[in-house]
Nucleic acid binder design. Structure first.
Lengths: 142, 142
DNA sequence: TCAGATAGTTACCATGAGTAACTATTAGGT
DNA sequence: ACCTAATAGTTACTCATGGTAACTATCTGA
């Protein structure tokens, strides 16, 4: 089999086992991966608008609206006032920050665990390659 | 950010852009990725049972049943007689083989396109790492 | 031979995502 | 300054994908 073909084959084979485990960790706090991806982003960038999330996560706006609303309902996320009255700018609530810290720790442990035996150099290589492919896909789609 | 953390972050960032493009290619033949993953497997292994698919794809049996039935309805897949009357053994139909060949070509082109600039050595490295991680996840889950 | 294991199905529910059509607000060109 | 076009977000609806529980049919092995 050609190596590029193998690449994508292997990529998808990893997805389902991986997301299953992650959701198992997240369920302890009534969360699913789609919600976590937003909390994760908020942990890094402090505050964001729904359009920013939509573009970054490659998910349509209505889906983002729904997921963000579920996080607001759980009181993990809160809306803040922005300059532009059209936009809805959100950030993690104090409770959201707590939960994020705990989950970040659990997920870190899990990730380190399943990465056992893979050298930091290999990890860096893989990260770089995935980043390049994402860029190619996005550039292509414009 | 720790490199193991970056790995999973980057992994998921690639998933949605990638699956969106794939589904766009597959839609020409009324297919979605969940169906394609089965056709792809059938192209490699000739004939399989639903339980084999379930284990390999890491998806529960009822989900496999539904997806396989949709492929039978599309006449891309047909049931064949096996030794064990409990099992449902399937293979690609002649039409299914045609479609698979065409799609394989289109997807190959697409994949080669977005892998431009990534050396075969890098590709091999990444494939190896993803395989190792999948093994770790599965072993862990036992 | 029959109890337990295995293969598959049915019914039902949850999650995640998309499209079309809409409102509210802002930005920019004249 | 005004109005059109663009942008941000929402609502309503639908589809794809997947899970669990409970079931039937068949096979295997003590």
């Amino acid at each position: 089999m050609e190596s590029y073909r193998k690449f994508f084959h292997q990529y998808f084979l990893l997805y389902r086992p991986f997301i299953s485990d992650l959701n198992r960790l997240l369920n302890e706090y009534d969360l699913h991966y789609s919600q976590w991806s937003i909390m994760y982003y908020l942990e890094m960038y402090e505050s964001v608008t729904l359009v920013e999330l939509s573009k970054h996560l490659y998910v349509e706006k209505p889906t983002i609206t729904r997921t963000v609303n579920s996080l607001i309902k759980l009181q993990y996320v809160e809306q803040i006032k922005g300059r532009d009255n059209r936009e809805k700018r959100i950030q993690l609530s104090p409770r959201g920050k707590e939960i994020t810290a705990i989950l970040r720790k659990n997920i870190d442990e899990y990730e380190q665990d399943i990465m056992t035996g893979i050298s930091p150099e290999q990890q860096a290589e893989v990260i770089e390659v995935m980043d390049q492919i994402r860029s190619m896909i996005i550039k292509r789609g414009v």
